[in-house]
Design a protein around this nucleic acid. Structure first.
Lengths: 165, 165
DNA sequence: TATTGTTATACTCTATAACTATA
DNA sequence: TATAGTTATAGAGTATAACAATA
């Protein structure tokens, strides 16, 4: 089965992780999966991730990029290796995140004064302005996904999630 | 910066998603992230995913592969398109999952009697035997991640997760 | 015309290892 | 020797679009 490479689509939506709804399909037996806490958590995250992506669509922001922006904004003078540690990812992964944020014009690398190997990360003015809007949208997203829980239930959910794992 | 392609390592651990611990690093400010339910959920999932991978390492099983095996086992005569719908992923993704499970010898495709386009999915005898061990290990994993919660708290957590999204 | 399975393509996220420049 | 940033490579998971065979 072959296809013409020349007819490749130009306006495809970016293929991101988690386009599925996280809902169960009626008539399908899920067996053991129904009993697993890990599966319940995974389904919830898939549902929420979709809303996150929809929320961030116009900004080209993904969860790791968002985390990186927030962490850079809250830790002045941070180096790339420190960002990687803070995010719990490899240095090479942090390079990719910073590359993409730099390409979007949100983050800058500046040569460190004290260590010629290191780059100091910072949000650009464009990045700072964008983060204001992004943070607002994310907070609205977070409120939306938590809307069916009372304040007490939200507190309890946080506590129980903290105990997991 | 170039490198010698001939010196490529041969015994690297497969790079899977979620090698990070999901823990926060002391001394780092996480700002808004601390307040987000979505971030709390994400961190819990990262922690748990690591234990899942460690548990499944000897079986080469990942969450989607595990879900697929359970669903195929519980829905006799299922077609690939139905599996994709049940898992909430694209057909092309289901092809990949089934390919990998077929390569492991756990799943078989059989020509459908009633629809010459379709293949009927089934666990092989090897797959059935493997699933017994896998399911046991996963149930132990699930008990492990839930161990710090009482039974009542586990029930409550499930309920609250169901309300999310 | 519509559906089924497949392939081609592309993108994100993650990893390990090796490399260069610097400490 | 060790660290900081980068690049090369790899693999899993996801997507859209097009295609051949069949319904």
């Amino acid at each position: 089965m072959s296809r013409k490479p020349s007819s490749r689509p130009q306006h495809r939506r970016p293929a991101q992780r988690g386009e599925s709804t996280g809902a169960q399909v009626p008539g399908v037996e899920y067996g053991l999966l129904e009993d697993l806490m890990g599966y319940a958590l995974r389904r919830a995250q898939i549902r929420i991730y979709q809303d996150f992506l929809d929320t961030m669509e116009s900004w080209s922001i993904t969860p790791p990029r968002f985390s990186a922006m927030i962490i850079i904004d809250n830790n002045a003078g941070m180096k790339l290796t420190e960002l990687a540690a803070a995010m719990g990812i490899a240095r090479s992964g942090a390079v990719e995140v910073v590359n993409s944020l730099e390409k979007l014009g949100f983050v800058s690398r500046t040569d460190s004064e004290v260590d010629k190997r290191a780059h100091v990360l910072a949000l650009t003015s464009v990045g700072k302005k964008a983060l204001t809007g992004i943070a607002q949208a994310i907070q609205a997203h977070d409120a939306r996904i938590s809307a069916r829980l009372t304040t007490a239930e939200q507190t309890e959910l946080r506590r129980l999630l903290g105990l997991l794992g």
